[in-house]
Design a binder for these strands. Structure first.
Lengths: 119, 119
DNA sequence: CGGCATCCTTGGAGATACTG
DNA sequence: CAGTATCTCCAAGGATGCCG
């Protein structure tokens, strides 16, 4: 089955690659990166993430599942009348903050349309 | 056409989002991230990247095109008998080094199976 | 509110072959 | 060596609806 082969390929790639590449396979996808970035500063609930990431519920749900499965994100449920679910970073996820901080810096330097201020 | 709508959606997402999210739309994809990471330390040629990233030539070609288009990567051609093409980071791309350095650190801390050496 | 189930579409990527 | 061309296919994601 090619599906299996595909899996094996990915597995193999994960095995052989350096840790960084491994991690990129876990988080290096647009939705997951968005979510991680959005959760960097604060806990958020499902619909908040849905709005901020602009993802469909199924897409968001899938991305969250994989992030939880790999230990980047934690789910917290509040049993109220309308049930409330909160997502936040695990320690592993929070440890990524310096990475995003650097990325923020970089983006500010290279993407911002700021005419001429810092440089 | 939904293709256009899709484009618009993406445009809109890029507009509204913070610079970091914009940048993630440019580089936040597994092949591109792989390439950037592989080029971080040294100039490489096509087939070297092909091997190190484990990508097909077309996939690699496409990813490189988009990276060049967005100014992360430079192409250099050496007109010899068997033509040689080299890829390296532009200044913009090189500026991402701290990001990958942080990611490397993180990966070493959280993914490496190293028993107990550094820590 | 926080999802899941379903249907459908699209493009990304695999495989293979070919060229300057 | 460094790609381009072609064909195919699958899975990610859009749209919509439903439910505890």
């Amino acid at each position: 089955m090619s599906a299996n082969d595909r899996q094996e390929e990915i597995e193999k790639r994960n095995q052989s690659a350096c840790p960084t590449i491994q991690s990129l396979n876990e988080i290096g996808e647009i939705w997951r990166l968005n979510i991680l970035h959005d959760l960097m500063d604060e806990e958020k609930r499902f619909n908040e993430l849905k709005r901020s990431t602009n993802a469909r519920s199924r897409t968001l749900s899938n991305a969250l599942d994989s992030l939880i499965e790999n230990g980047y994100v934690k789910r917290r449920t509040e049993e109220a009348a309308p049930i409330a679910v909160f997502y936040s970073l695990s320690e592993k996820g929070r440890a990524l903050k310096p990475v995003f901080d650097e990325l923020d810096d970089w983006a500010a330097d290279w993407l911002d349309d700021v005419p001429a201020d810092s440089v």
